[in-house]
Amino acid sequence: MGIIGWIVLGLIVGAIAKAIMPGKDPGGILVTMLLGVVGAFIGGLIGNWVFGVGIDRFWSLSTWLLAIAGSVIVLGVYRVIVGRKAVQR
Rank of each mutant, 00 (worst) to 15 (best):
G44L: 13
F58G: 06
V74I: 15
G36I: 08
G83E: 04
I29P: 10
S60H: 12
A86C: 01
W59C: 02
V8Q: 08
W6C: 02
R79Q: 10
A19K: 00
G54Q: 13
G5V: 11
G52R: 05
A67I: 15
I29W: 15
I4P: 02
V87Q: 07
I7F: 14
M21Q: 13
V37G: 05
V13G: 05
A19P: 00
G54K: 13
A17C: 14
L30V: 12
I73Q: 00
Y78A: 03
I68K: 00
I55A: 15
A69R: 00
V50M: 11
I16P: 04
W59F: 14
G47C: 10
G70Y: 10
N48Y: 07
M33N: 06
F41N: 09
Q88K: 11
K18C: 12
R89E: 09
T32S: 15
I29N: 12
G5P: 05
A69T: 10
Q88M: 07
V8G: 07
L65A: 10
I73P: 01
G23Q: 03
G83F: 04
L66W: 10
M21N: 13
I73T: 07
V80Q: 06
Y78E: 00
G52V: 13
V74Y: 03
D25F: 10
M1N: 07
I16H: 01
S62A: 08
I12C: 10
V77C: 03
A19L: 02
W59N: 09
V38R: 02
I73S: 04
P26E: 09
V53D: 14
G36A: 13
I20Y: 07
W64H: 05
G39D: 08
A67K: 13
V38D: 04
A67Y: 15
A17W: 11
S62L: 03
V13C: 15
G52S: 07
I81N: 02
V80P: 00
I42E: 02
R89I: 04
A19Y: 01
I20D: 03
V13R: 05
W59Y: 06
W64Q: 03
G28T: 04
L45A: 12
I42N: 07
V38W: 08
G76M: 15
P22R: 00
I7L: 15
V31K: 01
A86S: 05
V77G: 00
V82W: 01
V13D: 01
V72S: 08
G54L: 08
G14Y: 14
V53A: 10
G27L: 09
P22V: 03
G39K: 06
G39R: 05
Q88P: 02
K85P: 00
L45M: 11
W6T: 06
V50G: 04
I29E: 14
V38C: 11
Q88Y: 08
D56L: 12
K24M: 06
V53Y: 10
V77H: 02
I4W: 13
D25M: 09
I12G: 08
M21T: 14
